[in-house]
């Protein structure tokens, strides 16, 4: 239908997609290699962890919360599974995967319980657990590094499996994006998540338990962060205390660029994926364009600040129409 197609064109996601394509088009003439399937698969592989974490963070943001602890959760879980693999290399991959998801979910549940049962603002809770989880990495490892030569081959190989030219890590991100999209679009609980974040007091009238929604969001975000713990440690073949330190802020930036509202109830999987890819493209293109790696952070800073500024323009409440429409 042309009308619904036009509506689609006007969405933020379409704009963001256009921006991403524009960025690629601008790079292409100078560095045609960047657009080769191999490079694009590499780009996806580089951005997969950001996408995954941003999907979880989005759920929390949708319920008017924020989770600052996901990167610390990732580091803690990653260290624990790395140690498990180091000392019991014969266990295989399944226990590692299961443990990472369960442990991540448990750490997320701690956040969720404090927010839900005690009604402590999520920023305070996750600021606290961020420090605790990060310190726990040190306590678990005694400050040691777990290096690639201490990891079992299957532990390292899984994320690198290539299926159709795309890495397993990328496939996991794609699968997770599809699952979260289906959850948000098709499941009752997913829709309730939007309603609870959009208008908590109205949600109460509609029989939606806002606290349970917040808890669910933290639980899922934690589970994803835990899974990413294993994926990260395996992808970079090293586990240490400062893994992914400060990464939570990049994750939030990807969400905000993708159109997720910090005040809840607004955001889509497509937007978040595109927001993460946008940051990924910039990060991968800068060295090509000859920008010193030391400039990358400043450029990201400009991009993030600019994006949130434009975002704020778009989401400002417009006046309610009171005057009757007159024939033009």
């Amino acid at each position: 239908m042309p009308e619904s197609f036009l509506r689609l064109l006007r969405t933020r996601e379409a704009g963001l997609l256009g921006l991403n394509l524009l960025l690629l088009a601008a790079i292409a003439p100078f560095f045609p290699a960047f657009l080769r399937p191999g490079s694009l698969a590499g780009l996806l592989d580089d951005t997969a962890l950001l996408i995954l974490l941003a999907l979880g963070e989005m759920l929390v943001l949708l319920t008017r919360g924020v989770d600052l602890s996901i990167a610390a959760n990732l580091a803690f879980t990653g260290m624990v599974v790395a140690l498990l693999d180091q000392y019991h290399p014969g266990l295989g991959l399944a226990p590692v995967l299961i443990l990472s998801v369960l442990m991540g979910a448990a750490l997320g549940a701690v956040n969720g319980l404090l927010v839900w049962r005690l009604r402590i603002p999520s920023i305070v809770v996750t600021l606290g657990t961020l420090s605790i989880y990060r310190g726990a990495v040190y306590l678990a490892s005694g400050g040691r590094w777990v290096n690639s030569n201490q990891m079992s081959p299957q532990f390292l190989a899984f994320v690198r499996l290539q299926l159709g030219g795309v890495s397993m890590l990328s496939w996991i991100a794609i699968a997770c994006a599809v699952l979260v999209a289906l959850f948000l679009r098709r499941s009752v609980r997913g829709r309730d998540l939007y309603a609870a974040g959009n208008n908590p007091s109205a949600a109460l009238y509609a029989g939606i338990d806002v606290g349970v929604m917040q808890f669910s969001a933290f639980l899922i975000a934690g589970a994803i962060a835990g899974l990413c713990g294993y994926l990260w440690v395996s992808r970079y073949a090293v586990a240490y205390t400062d893994v992914a330190s400060g990464f939570e802020l990049q994750v939030i930036a990807a969400c905000v660029i993708g159109g997720v509202s910090i005040s809840g109830g607004v955001g889509s999987v497509a937007g978040v994926v595109l927001g993460a890819l946008f940051l990924g493209i910039i990060k991968n293109a800068l060295p090509l364009v000859g920008v010193s790696p030391f400039f990358q952070m400043a450029v990201s800073g400009v991009v993030i600040t600019g994006a949130v500024l434009i975002n704020a323009r778009g989401t400002q409440a417009s006046a309610l129409r009171i005057l009757e429409r007159r024939p033009a």
Binding site: F295, M297, G301, V302, I304
Partner: peptide
């Protein structure tokens, strides 16, 4: 955003 910007 500005945290990244300033340190960047």
């Amino acid at each position: 955003g500005t945290m990244t910007l300033f340190r960047g």
